[in-house]
Design a binder for these strands. Sequence first.
DNA 1: AAATAAATTAATGTATACATTGACACATCC
DNA 2: GGATGTGTCAATGTATACATTAATTTATTT
Lengths: 223, 223
Amino acid sequence: MPMTNKLSRVNDAYSRIKEEIRTNRMPPGFQATEPEIALRLGMSRTPVREALIRLESEGLVELIPRRGARVLPINVNDMKEIYDILTSLEPDVAANVAAKKPTLAEMRPLEKAAKDMERALAREDLDAWADADDRFHLYMLDLNGNRRLREIVLALKFQVCRSRIVTLRLRDKPEKSNKEHREILDHIRKGDAEAARKAFRAHRQRAAEELIKLLKKFRITNL
Amino acid sequence: MPMTNKLSRVNDAYSRIKEEIRTNRMPPGFQATEPEIALRLGMSRTPVREALIRLESEGLVELIPRRGARVLPINVNDMKEIYDILTSLEPDVAANVAAKKPTLAEMRPLEKAAKDMERALAREDLDAWADADDRFHLYMLDLNGNRRLREIVLALKFQVCRSRIVTLRLRDKPEKSNKEHREILDHIRKGDAEAARKAFRAHRQRAAEELIKLLKKFRITNL
DNA sequence: AAATAAATTAATGTATACATTGACACATCC
DNA sequence: GGATGTGTCAATGTATACATTAATTTATTT
């Protein structure tokens, strides 16, 4: 029965599998064959296959010839790769945004996200903090306007998002992070691109270093 | 007859279509339905479809529900997006490479590429020049070692490669470019990361600006 | 002739069929 | 017992079938 639902089955399969990966219901290393997944999603192999191809090119799963799809784990080296790229990209995003001198209305979501981060930290709600942090970075990308850049950064962040679930609880309270966000905001408000870039770069590098130190300390090699 | 060739049909379809796009045999805006492409490639729709999905997620084609696959044109805004990202990434690559202090053996391919660029320019062979230029940038990515970064940069460059076929002949002789490459090499040899970054950034920005000016001058809006 | 309705066509999305072939279990030999 | 050969099973890669539906053409009405 083709086209039963408005949205295509491929899309359905794609977002459902992706969500299962994000929430660790399909944890790193998890393997399943196409028929298994198809059965689980209540559709035939074809749309599952096509969804898996998309997920593969996003770097979330690996398609192993006879063993099915495997959810890719992230190791320390992967983390380094990803944070290196983010360290190159995001500071320039902040600089561009600062150079554009956004209006107060455009700044509002950023300000709110920063405030939410502080409130969340005050009540020790780490999940809410992480959520606000994501929003901060996402709005920045939106303000910047470069669609391709946005997609690249989001894809990279999705790859590390699972690891954050773990590390969020292992690390110290992210007070430094909050302060850095405030600083970045200040620079953007003043339209000081160079300062915004520098501050963001320091922010990213510190966060990345801290994270990798943490993973090594706890001997977490795969996530 | 499944698995007739060693390599899978999907791979075959993928690389053949990609090559046709690169060489402008499937020019920007070109549209074809799945059965048409399948016929042309001498296989059934299934592998073609899967190849197209991969090409779509690389940003090379657009899959329009009832009209088939369309080869995406690149406009000035796309160019800006892409060069903005490259301007963020490649200077840091050069800086990382410089910081690593590569051995003479590791430097050799870079040196050779730079020399090839000069020789090619001396005999006015623009294609050979472009080829050597590509090699220079590619070796840099290899030395840097970040696989994800490499794939991202290559995918972005593929999107603009067709435009270069045109602009290569419209622009002045790339003498400045050659000089800049030499400079970057010097900084890397000395292990001066900051200088390498700065030089590469200037290189990219100048090249991008020049390109966009050219496109505007010749009223080229789509490629 | 213009506008609308009906019919045809064809492309997609999905399901299913099937040959090939790797993986694993079992049997055989030293 | 360990190593090697054989057979079965099942997953993949690919082809094909088919219902749905957008697009186009033809027919009909005003």
